[in-house]
């Protein structure tokens, strides 16, 4: 039996962050229907956890749960993505923040001119650890510390993942129309 108190706290503290959780799940799973399932699952976990826990930062907390549920979902439905993600993880340790060091970097104007479809495709093409860091930062507006807590990665790793994600996007979007 879920107590009234937990349900009350859930509607008050967790429901307002549904859009954030949904957006994160949407980018991690890659489609709307699965995102709904993931968020629903995450919310039920949150509700169960509220029975015994006080939550200081409900938004970051819900996003962390959503992220974990999404990863479980990925392991079950898209194991290949996670394997690829492991490879990217290795690459980020020796590669610098900028993937094409020798070529000139793309113009800011080109990046800004990118259309929706290429933006979505470029984000979807990011390896998962980069993608989640980018979405948590740029879409959800989490701090480095909150992203580190949610993903269980050290803050330095979060920073370099974010830098890699951005460099890949800048590179992909800036060259798309050349």
């Amino acid at each position: 039996m879920t107590s009234d108190d937990a349900r009350h706290r859930f509607t008050r503290a967790i429901m307002p962050h549904l859009d954030d959780a949904y957006s994160l799940a949407r980018w991690l799973t890659g489609n709307a229907t699965d995102a709904e399932d993931v968020v629903q699952d995450a919310c039920l976990r949150a509700l169960a956890a509220l029975e015994s826990a006080e939550v200081a930062h409900p938004r970051a907390w819900l996003l962390a749960i959503t992220r974990n549920v999404a990863f479980t979902w990925l392991a079950k439905n898209r194991p290949r993505d996670l394997v690829l993600a492991g490879g990217a993880e290795d690459a980020e340790t020796h590669d610098g923040a900028s993937p094409h060091c020798d070529e000139p970097s793309p113009e800011a104007a080109l990046i800004e001119a990118a259309d929706r479809r290429s933006v979505e495709a470029a984000i979807a093409a990011l390896p998962i650890p980069f993608r989640e860091a980018l979405v948590m930062r740029e879409v959800n507006g989490l701090s480095y510390r909150e992203i580190a807590d949610a993903t269980g990665a050290p803050i330095g790793t979060v920073m370099s993942r974010l830098a890699r994600a951005r460099a890949l996007l800048i590179d992909g979007l800036g060259r798309v129309s050349l």
Binding site: L18, D19, D20, A21, Y22, S23, R26, W27, A32, E36, V39, S105, P106, A108, A109, I111, E112, A114, D115, R116, V119, E120, I123, E138, V139, N140, R166, L169, I170, L173, G174
Partner: peptide
């Protein structure tokens, strides 16, 4: 820095937070 700014503006425009259905 300009590129980071441009990327952020592009993301705001094309990959904004979505409302949950």
């Amino acid at each position: 820095r300009e590129r980071l700014d441009a990327l952020r503006r592009t993301l705001r425009r094309h990959a904004a937070r979505e409302a949950a259905p």
